[in-house]
Design a protein around this nucleic acid. Structure first.
Lengths: 123, 123
DNA sequence: CGGCGTTGTATATCATGGGGAATAACGGAT
DNA sequence: ATCCGTTATTCCCCATGATATACAACGCCG
């Protein structure tokens, strides 16, 4: 709806992320990881649930924590259940900020594929 | 200007492209390649000028020509200078379409990094 | 008619990043 | 004190994608 031609041969796609002092700070994959950490309560369980190696997941968390003014993930080693990880208030806020950004991006993408001049069709 | 805080710790970045029947159809790298073909008059010279392997360049051109309703690049084998390649009218049009799209994207990016809530700064 | 620099295509080599395995330290629970 | 599953870290392996190499076909031009 909103588009008189539903036969979309082409579509505008894209990826976006937030750069920080060391390069990528927040991106789609990192957001999924944060959500899973929030849900499972540990980095390793989150990594397993998305078929990501623990090493990779740990690197991503470390990168985010290093670049943020305040850590996004709080980690505990040892103790009940061997430890775990939880999102800080800053982590939850980052999740929200990025979600809104991504939604705006999706709208931009849809708007632009709708405005696509059906390349060279009428030639 | 337009942003009261010029100390930008974070910036929204991204990439965008146009998907076609077989996946990526037009993207930044492909646009650079098209420009160089237009300037040099051959795929191999264009590839050399941007340190890209001829095979890769050829694959990209082939992908674009296969997905477009009409080829973007016209190729000649043998003949004067051994042959060459030139952009068709459709190729020039694709260049223009993507440039406008990319410019709108840059504006979106700048607008959004300006609207960034300076994550967790005041905590 | 032979030379030249393309396009076109197959094969081989290689580099980079990610994954897996292994291990230490940790601390609450039992 | 021991057990357990986690965080934290190192090292090795390998799969994949890109690059390099090689070679055939082509057609204008001198």
């Amino acid at each position: 709806m909103g588009n008189r031609n539903s036969k979309c041969r082409y579509a505008v796609r894209g990826r976006l992320w937030i750069d920080g002092p060391e390069g990528t700070f927040l991106g789609h994959g990192r957001m999924v990881l944060l959500e899973r950490i929030h849900h499972h309560g540990s980095i390793s369980a989150a990594a397993r649930s998305m078929s990501m190696s623990y090493r990779h997941a740990w690197d991503l968390v470390d990168s985010m924590n290093r670049q943020a003014p305040h850590p996004l993930v709080s980690k505990a080693v040892g103790g009940k259940g061997g430890g775990g990880a939880t999102l800080t208030a800053a982590g939850l806020e980052a999740l929200d900020v990025f979600h809104r950004l991504q939604q705006a991006f999706v709208e931009f993408l849809e708007e632009r594929t709708g405005a696509l001049p059906w390349l060279e069709d009428g030639r």
